[in-house]
Computed example of a mutant assay.
Amino acid sequence: MEFIGWTVVLVVPVVYLLIALAQVQAASFAVASAVDAASRILEVESGDAAVAHARVAVALALSDQGVDADPATALSVGCADAACTGAVVRVQAGVDLPVLAAAGVGRDVVVVDAERAVTLADTGGAP
């Protein structure tokens, strides 16, 4: 009986930790992939259509890793300089940790983000 008790006390937290770390790692891969995809689109395309296409790329990259985040709020694009010839692309997503989400703890506990500086395709306007 003692063996079963110690096994539960030791194994359950280790399994939880592995699952939680796997979810954080998947979100990290998703965010890095999303910022790369969005920045590539903004480097070759210009105008409002470029931002819309970048949001689609962010949505695809996040959904590939099972991250449930709204691409409209996850993606942010800001001018890097006064002339807006470059931009800083940032993708941010919260991670749902197992059991904590059911307990009412939100995605703001663990937030993963990535950013990348790009030279915009259209140097005459804002992203």
Rank of each mutant, 00 (worst) to 15 (best):
A82K: 11
A121Y: 12
A34I: 03
P127E: 05
V88C: 04
G5L: 13
A117Q: 12
G124W: 10
L75M: 07
V14M: 14
P71Y: 06
E2P: 12
L75H: 04
A117Y: 04
L62Q: 05
A32M: 11
T73A: 10
C79W: 11
A126E: 15
V112F: 00
V11Y: 08
G104Q: 08
C84E: 11
V111L: 00
V105M: 00
C84Q: 11
R107L: 00
I19G: 03
A103Q: 12
G66L: 07
L62N: 01
I4E: 09
D64C: 01
Y16Q: 04
V56P: 04
R55V: 03
G94Q: 02
S28D: 14
V14N: 03
Q23Y: 02
V88A: 10
I4C: 09
V12T: 08
E45M: 12
A69D: 07
V118T: 15
W6S: 15
R107V: 10
R107M: 05
V95D: 00
V35S: 09
V15E: 01
D48H: 08
D122L: 03
A38T: 08
R40L: 11
S33K: 05
W6F: 14
Y16A: 09
A103C: 10
W6E: 12
V58S: 08
V67M: 08
I41W: 04
A72G: 12
T7C: 10
L75V: 02
A49N: 09
A20I: 05
A20E: 13
V44H: 09
F29C: 00
T123K: 06
D68S: 12
C79Y: 10
G106P: 08
V105Q: 05
F3C: 02
G86I: 07
V9G: 01
A93R: 04
A82L: 15
T123P: 13
V51H: 06
R40F: 07
D70G: 13
L18Q: 06
L21P: 06
P71E: 01
C79P: 03
G5D: 00
F29Q: 04
Q65Y: 15
D64W: 07
A49Y: 07
S33N: 13
G106F: 02
V95N: 03
L42R: 06
P71G: 06
V95I: 01
P127C: 13
V15G: 11
T7V: 11
A121I: 10
A126I: 14
L10H: 04
D122M: 02
A126D: 13
A37K: 03
C79E: 08
A50D: 01
V12E: 01
A93C: 02
G106S: 12
A54N: 11
T123Q: 15
V99D: 01
W6P: 07
L97H: 01
A121K: 09
V14W: 06
A126P: 12
L17D: 00
R55I: 00
A37H: 10
V89R: 03
G78Y: 00
A93Q: 07
A52M: 06
T123F: 05
V51W: 09
A30D: 05
D48R: 10
R107C: 03
G5Y: 09
A93H: 05
I19V: 15
L97E: 06
L60P: 01
V51L: 14
S39A: 15
L42H: 04
L42A: 11
L100C: 09
T7I: 03
R90H: 09
R40Y: 07
C79A: 12
H53N: 15
P98D: 06
M1S: 13
R55A: 06
